[in-house]
Nucleic acid binder design. Structure first.
Length: 912
RNA sequence: GCCGGGGUGGCGGAAUGGCAGACGCGACGGACUCAAAAUCCGUUGGGCGCAAGCCCGUGUGGGUUCGAAUCCCACUCCCGGCACCA
């Protein structure tokens, strides 16, 4: 009784020891005691937003995975950087402040303290000396500094990289280059400023924003769901034109795609990023406007179909629309083109008005029902020479390509639908395949009705028409992207202030370095200046800051501070760099430390959820590339290897009213589920407080133990897969740990049951096989099968009077990464040297790992007919003889075999 | 619609061209116990058979191969992402 496995005492003892000894502190190059001969491993978790709810058992599965890998790498002799911090700017703390008046800083600090406590209680081997939070002024000072670098840089297309804007200005002033064709000296001060502003990587622009009145802020495209709701809170979002800060991520589109080939990431994440960037090859073509010198530029991926362009469509917001509207409907105008209006101006105004009120969602759900009106103007198809009508329609999006299309109904489904509805001509320019009976034909085939293209396949026709367009100066080959510049302003309080000053004449300057960090001002009222109607106008919360913050006098002139704050993604764009050197007040990261820890390919292992595939991971890559171009970091990519852990799912139960009931009190019987005497319905999804199916880790640790949680979560299945939490199954690993302990420790005396008698051959073979198997699993993060191997080895020890020392020593070390507390305790009792965390990872002997004899399978015609024990080293001839001598084989074989396949020592297949 | 991932016992899963179902849960039988819990031992894919043994079996259909859960083709269902992107 006295000496049973007491997980609570053991786990608390070792967590206290690790904290007191700073066991997991890791040194930087240059620090006293740093060992440069060791290889480095930078193993990183996606840091959390510290929510008020704290962690449930589903959250840390990725942290446990990275912790095991970190502990394994330490034992392999690496310097391991394994830090943790908090992404602590964000809406929940601010919303709480709105409701209660409690400063977000206070809430954030409390939540972080709770997270740290919970994370420590999981036994995660972080170097807590490097803890950081994005809300620390010492941290966001550098977030602001990076923003200023973006503001002070431009993307030089000739070099394909960012450069200081001062170099552009110098070149312009020296006359080495000009401003988009205009000599620099011909521009006045205002025009010069405007040109420079248009070149910066961080710039102000009038853009269509996603305005969310309920949140009181605008949102990035990435933060709006396909239903046209806010990603956070699910509030309605409206389109508004507004002057906002933008980051020129589009300049990096090609590099962001190309460099995906350099990183070891899950293919789905790479695919999502490629898809999000959406690079497509095509041509831009200018269609001359009838009776005008102007042209309408379109982008198309199918220039080969130009002879079939029978009309043209502009997005309703297109800037040329006004100039295209004619006073009266021209001859040939069909009734359906007019939208019932008496004149084009009325029809267009009306249509634009309605389109601007539609949400993204409404535009999308219209699907096949196309809407639009005729502008009254025509342009000329440069290939066919036909005069074709110009429409506006909201199925053409302003944000992609040029906001205008040549409509080719014969080869485009959307154009087909529009043409049918608006009674426009349809001309096929690709001969459909035999048997095709659909509408628009998207496949390959010879060109028809296409003049000099006739007979060419799609690819050849594309090449030919682009040559012609370039020769005739109607257009050129182009590449278009779905990716748009990153909208970087938010009107909320709890974010990094954008460190920019606005002068009286509209000029801008960065806050000087010595004034950083630009601290968030104190305000009395955290409420965003929002209203519940969509008509409200976005107003930054920092407008409520005191005047001595808002206005700055420089050399007698009053400058006004930028009032927008940065989005939550800002802080997480570079935190992995700060972990390397979190206390540095001179640089965002010291050069030598950065070079050491980022090595050739950046972070060695980055574990986190797949939900960040296009947001955080794309933004961070973008910032990293800018910093790389500016010489601040030494690698082209931040995260060399990425791993997505799967969610822990759980069953939830609802009663007849649809109200969730506590999942841990539901009983299963008679083929149904019951709570408090009534039948409840089972569903399956993410764990969460609202579904009453979360499992609280604090309670779990008391009842079952931390090592049990770690073993269970790793044993559930592959780390990358979503898996259901089943409390019932926990007992398996719990039993294992108790049996493991009993194998080592006499329950009556507390004596170690270890002797130095050697292991017998069978046990020694199993030990080496286990070591080999677990070692192989570690590199691939296949911890589920490692745990299974532990069970097997453990079962082989049951019933022995004592464990051979060679087995005990290796077993404890193998267990140390996954179940570190019990491993430390046994290691100490066994008289191990120092912490087991730095013991050598066990080696194995390949020849001992091989089994002495194996079961050879004998097949006849591919069906198993016999199993024979044979020595491992059996020769092909011997194996064949043994197999053919089998009685069981003889019964299934009449006559001589036609062929015998021999794969010693595993298999002989006799083909009759 | 497009892109990506997946379908294996009652359940979680193992096996990536060579013994399908490792390991665990559950279930069943047994030991210990006055009894229960805990613990320990055994059985456990389905079917036929007293047994030896035989047949079937990895979503469906086909193919490659001496041999396929694994590779190829077609289909189907489930999950994730994107979606009027010209």
């Amino acid at each position: 009784m006295e000496h049973r496995y007491d997980h609570v005492t053991i786990e608390q003892k070792w967590q206290a020891r690790w904290a007191a000894d700073r066991t997991f502190r890791v040194l930087n190059p240059g620090d006293d005691g740093f060992d440069p001969s060791k290889p480095k491993q930078y193993i990183l978790d996606m840091f959390p937003y510290p929510s008020g709810e704290g962690l449930h058992v589903g959250h840390p599965i990725g942290y446990i995975g990275s912790d095991i890998f970190s502990r394994y790498m330490r034992m392999k002799g690496a310097n391991v950087l394994h830090p943790m911090g908090f992404d602590s700017f964000g809406l929940p703390a601010e919303q709480y402040a709105v409701e209660t008046g409690v400063h977000p800083r206070v809430t954030t600090e409390q939540n972080i303290a709770n997270y740290v406590r919970q994370l420590k209680s999981i036994g995660l081997s972080y170097d807590w000396d490097r803890e950081l939070a994005t809300t620390d002024p010492g941290y966001y000072r550098w977030t602001q500094w990076i923003f200023i670098q973006l503001f002070e840089s431009w993307f030089d297309p000739a070099l394909g990289k960012a450069r200081p804007i001062s170099e552009l200005i110098a070149a312009l002033e020296a006359g080495e280059t000009d401003a988009a064709g205009v000599p620099w000296s011909d521009l006045d001060g205002e025009a010069q400023r405007s040109f420079i502003s248009g070149m910066r990587l961080a710039y102000l622009d009038d853009v269509m924003v996603n305005w969310c009145p309920a949140l009181g802020t605008v949102l990035a495209n990435e933060e709006v769901t396909r239903e046209g709701k806010s990603d956070r809170g699910d509030h309605p979002v409206y389109r508004r034109p507004l002057r906002q800060w933008m980051l020129r991520i589009t300049a990096y589109a090609d590099r962001l795609i190309a460099d995906l080939d350099l990183v070891d990431w899950p293919e789905p994440v790479k695919a999502m990023q490629r898809n999000w960037i959406g690079r497509s090859h095509g041509a831009s073509i200018g269609f001359p406007i009838d009776d005008s010198d102007h042209r309408i530029e379109v982008f198309t991926t199918r220039p080969d179909t130009i002879f079939g362009a029978t009309y043209m469509v502009l997005a309703p917001e297109h800037s040329l629309v006004e100039s295209l509207v004619v006073p009266d409907w021209p001859d040939g105008t069909k009734e359906v083109w007019t939208g019932g209006a008496a004149a084009p101006s009325e029809a267009v105004a009306d249509y634009r008005n309605r389109a601007s009120r539609k949400s993204e969602r409404e535009r999308q759900t219209e699907g096949k029902d196309k809407t639009g009106v005729f502008t009254g103007s025509f342009c000329v198809n440069p290939a066919s020479g036909e005069r074709i009508p110009i429409f506006i329609a909201d199925y053409v999006l302003m944000g992609y390509g040029t906001g205008a299309i040549m409509a080719v109904p014969g080869q485009d489904e959307r154009d087909w639908e529009f043409a049918e509805q608006f009674e426009l001509p349809i001309v096929r320019t690709v001969q459909p395949a035999d048997g095709f009976d659909g509408d628009a034909y998207l496949g390959d085939g010879p060109a028809i009705n296409s003049g000099f293209l006739d007979g060419l396949g799609v690819d050849d026709a594309k090449t030919r028409i682009i040559e012609w367009l370039e020769a005739e100066e109607y257009g050129a080959a182009t590449i278009s992207y779905k990716l748009r510049d990153w909208l970087f302003s938010r009107q909320r309080y709890w974010g990094e202030p954008i460190p920019i000053l606005h002068g009286p004449d509209g000029e801008m300057r960065a806050v000087p370095d010595e004034d950083l960090p630009l601290l968030l001002p104190e305000v009395e009222d955290y409420r965003p200046a929002s209203a519940d109607q969509e008509d409200a106008v976005p107003v930054p919360s920092l407008g409520k800051a005191p005047d001595d913050w808002r206005f700055v006098k420089i050399e007698g002139v009053v400058w006004e501070r930028e009032l927008n704050t940065m989005p939550q993604w800002a802080g997480s764009c570079w935190y992995y760099l700060r972990f390397i050197d979190p206390g540095n007040s001179d640089r965002l990261v010291a050069e030598e430390a950065e070079r050491y820890w980022m090595g050739d390919s950046g972070v060695d292992l980055y574990i986190g959820g797949v939900e960040h595939a296009v947001l955080h991971l794309l933004y961070a890559r973008f910032w990293h590339k800018v910093l790389y171009d500016l010489g601040e970091v030494s690698t082209g990519e931040p995260f060399g290897r990425l791993f997505n852990q799967g969610l822990i799912m759980a069953h939830a139960y609802r009663d007849e009213r649809g109200v969730y009931v506590p999942a841990d009190e539901v009983e299963e019987r008679d083929g149904g589920f019951w709570f408090d005497g009534q039948s409840v319905e089972q569903s399956y999804g993410r764990m969460g407080k609202s579904k009453k199916n979360g499992v609280n880790p604090d309670e779990f640790f008391v009842d079952h133990g931390v090592d049990t949680l770690r073993l269970y979560e790793m044993f559930m299945g592959p780390l990358s897969e979503a898996k259901p939490w089943t409390t019932r199954d926990v007992v398996g690993v719990e039993r294992f740990l108790q049996r493991f302990w009993r194998n080592f420790v006499d329950p009556d005396t507390g004596d170690l049951l270890i002797s130095d008698t050697p292991a017998d051959e069978e046990l020694r073979g199993l030990l080496h096989r286990t070591t080999k198997s677990v070692t192989d699993d570690m590199a691939e993060l296949r911890f589920n099968t490692s745990v299974a191997r532990f069970f097997e080895l453990n079962n082989a020890l049951v019933g022995l009077d004592s464990i051979p020392l060679e087995v005990a020593d290796v077993f404890v070390r193998l267990m140390a990464p996954i179940a570190p507390h019990v491993a430390e305790e046994l290691w100490e009792r066994m008289g191990g040297d120092g912490s087991v965390c730095f013991a050598d990872w066990p080696a194995y002997d390949e020849s001992l790992a091989a089994e002495e004899s194996v079961t050879m399978v004998v097949q006849v015609g591919g069906k198993i007919r016999d199993r024979i024990e044979v020595p491992v080293g059996i020769s092909s001839d011997e194996a064949q003889q043994v197999a053919l001598a089998s009685d069981k084989v003889a019964g299934h074989l009449d006559g001589e075999p036609t062929r015998v396949i021999v794969r010693p020592p595993n298999l002989v297949n006799i083909v009759p």
